[in-house]
Design a protein around this nucleic acid. Sequence first.
DNA 1: CTGAAAGCGCTTACAG
DNA 2: CTGAAAGCGCTTACAG
Lengths: 343, 343
Amino acid sequence: MAKRPTSADIARAAGVSKGAVSYALNGQPGVSEATRERILAIAAEMGFRPNLAARALNGASAGTIGLALCRPARVLGVEPFFMELISGIEAALAERSYGLTLQVVPDHAAEIAVYRRWSAERRVDGVLIVDLHRNDDRIDVIRELQLPAVVIAGPGDFGGLPQVWSDDAAAVTEAVEYLCALGHRTITRVGGMPELLHTEIRTRAFAEVCERLGVQHAVTVPADYTAEEGSRVTRRVLSAPGRPTALIYDNDLMAVAGLAVAQEMGIAVPGELSIVAWDDSMLCRIVHPPLTALSRDVPAYGTHAAHRLLELIATGTTTSLEDVAAHLVPRGSTATISSVRPD
Amino acid sequence: MAKRPTSADIARAAGVSKGAVSYALNGQPGVSEATRERILAIAAEMGFRPNLAARALNGASAGTIGLALCRPARVLGVEPFFMELISGIEAALAERSYGLTLQVVPDHAAEIAVYRRWSAERRVDGVLIVDLHRNDDRIDVIRELQLPAVVIAGPGDFGGLPQVWSDDAAAVTEAVEYLCALGHRTITRVGGMPELLHTEIRTRAFAEVCERLGVQHAVTVPADYTAEEGSRVTRRVLSAPGRPTALIYDNDLMAVAGLAVAQEMGIAVPGELSIVAWDDSMLCRIVHPPLTALSRDVPAYGTHAAHRLLELIATGTTTSLEDVAAHLVPRGSTATISSVRPD
DNA sequence: CTGAAAGCGCTTACAG
DNA sequence: CTGAAAGCGCTTACAG
């Protein structure tokens, strides 16, 4: 195979200098239109592609953004959220021929080390940050490194970093109002990790709406998004005296696992128990009955965040975005309580 | 923020040349042990990290491998296989601080364009190739580009590229033998895309074992791995006269969707219908009844492939690997047929 | 064992 | 509008 042509080869073939080639290729002024076209034609003919490393050395972009995921691999494998998010991110990057560098990390310390390495090596032009905590120690590092970043979380103050978020409080409120309208008065929520900011936001909103509507038992039980813990927690909740008539889960995976537990315990869904899932993936539709869900367009969410980050990288500034909130999609897993167990 | 130190800064601080710094950092001969340690200490103290672009410009590796995925985003989001594979790949890369660059592509032509770009830009040191076809046109391009690559597929001849594979024929044979032992004589398989090499291998093995064991109706119906088509195909198969007593699905997502269809049609699983899923993810365990599955360690599969690719990149050569075949894990979705519908 | 120099392939002031 | 030169931050022969 012939050696790949360099800009010097193009320059020689076109009878111009390397500088002219560079200007022509990058659409910069400094060459006449005729010369530009001739250079472009020759470059295309010779299959020239600029060496990315050489560009990067001159301070050009790496053409790549980074995403570090701090979840156990077994959760990533089965939870649709992240893969859908990644799909959406990819869609935005593809338009600009940007790449995505993925890294799975065990904890925040490791994630911070990854950011330091990426920054030092100029491996990425910016990062997307997910799963924010309150007082998240990653924020300070990102600022110290001056690494362009968009936070996928909110609302909140993340050291001034732009954020893409949706109103989880509104969504959980909609779900509880719906369940109350169906007659439910004891509702348990199986939440995500308490240290996550969006868990906290949902927990507070859940407590508030329940108090406002006079829900008698409104408890949030923490869990970790895995099917295993979804099963375990559900079994415990449904075995205790005065069990709830409705369950809200913070992700679809736990909701599906919870549905299986209810069925295994002979508790009819939705006759005796209503179930609402957060995040509406295929999982919610392939079980029986299909699950009522708080649905949102996760890929679009990723696309929006990636667009913001690309803008930030290109122009040095971008805006935060409040994306559309999840909305309730009623399916077979929710029903009025009075019809089966009149109080 | 202070400017990042360069090797020249380290050299100045240590009172040596840049060359000495390079030798010290890379464990090359050319500096005394004492000097090396002093340089290393100073580099660490100053937080020095070599600029990746500068290294790459000298022919060093990009420190990244590429994975192009040619599946619709909606499938990627919900099918556990790829995310599990990626988890495993990540695990292998993390040991060596290698990155993974992901790209979702719509078709083979786009995938080939991505390989050309990655190669030309030196963006990746090598690639992992999945979802092989017979006479796959990607192979020639990879060879033309001289891009280090490991094929995750087999057995087969992929232009001499090393391959990591498992014996799908043995696995499907095991499943059919088991179903036959339970008394099933009409078995339908809901397969993956026919153009995929592993679909072809499974289809042939399925036909062979069925003929050998005297299965009367042994049909493979093609599908596309999505839950939607899994439902549609299952509904059709179960609605036709002389419906099978056992179904084998080429992935877990379609199997779970098929189970839901059987339940919606009032067909008892496993009483009247046995179901076997290929790929054993959490999906198979969270449905009711849990699905008998052809189980394999997908993350390990990814890890092995990544290790091979890293070896190929580092040494210029590597070996193919026949990974362990999927094995049957019996669960609640399979039972003897005679107990319910004696022939 | 060590230092000075050239070069990787681009980009970008700087002269003409 | 164009050309020659310097420089990005490393690595690697090549002399001492």
